[in-house]
């Protein structure tokens, strides 16, 4: 069995895994990182979205959102994964989490971990998205409860909160 060495939410793991094991199942069933749920089997819903570093996990590589049900655990070898559980330090919420709470951007919350991770990645690429851009950017993440309106609001609010005042000065 191949071996993976992966950092998840700041903790190192080394495991033997079946080659076909999905990252989503590795996180949930092997590591107990059940904060990342699974909503489909065709990579359509985005519930399982996590951030994965683009290169070896040295500092300096960027993390992009991936659907962890469409990535094999072995593909995460040598990389670092951030899940919803690793987003806040336990004291303070990430601005995106805070914005989802403030704007009532969740009901059942099943889509929420994936939605928050995808939204963070969206702002990495576009720190000041229009409503239209948020709607397009989140097309890979389905929510059955909210009708998306408050999610869009939350993402734009978080965008405002995350831009530094200096940048704000430049863009406005």
């Amino acid at each position: 069995m191949p071996r993976v060495s992966v950092e998840v939410d700041g903790v190192e793991y080394d495991d033997d895994v079946e080659p076909r094991l999905l990252l989503a199942h590795y996180l949930r069933d092997r590591l107990g990182k059940v904060g990342t749920p699974i909503g489909c089997d065709t990579s359509n819903c985005g519930a399982c979205t996590v951030l994965l570093s683009t290169g070896r996990r040295a500092s300096g590589t960027t993390s992009v959102s991936v659907k962890s049900c469409s990535v094999l655990a072995v593909q995460a070898d040598g990389k670092s994964v951030t899940t919803i559980e690793g987003l806040s330090d336990g004291q303070e919420l990430h601005p995106m989490q805070q914005a989802f709470h403030e704007e009532h951007a969740l009901q059942c919350g099943y889509c929420t971990p994936g939605m928050i991770m995808a939204a963070i990645d969206l702002l990495r690429e576009n720190p000041n998205p229009s409503e239209e851009e948020v709607r397009e950017g989140l097309e890979g993440n389905l929510c059955r409860c909210t009708g998306y309106q408050n999610i869009v609001r939350a993402v734009r609010r978080a965008a405002g909160d995350m831009r530094s005042p200096a940048e704000e000065g430049v863009t406005s």
């Binding site: 949930r28 990182k33 971990p113």
Partner: peptide, 14 residues
């Protein structure tokens, strides 16, 4: 929301 936005939810599959 506190548990839902931090991944501390208790879904049956968990």
């Amino acid at each position: 929301d506190a548990r839902l936005i931090t991944g501390r939810t208790n879904w049956t599959d968990n």
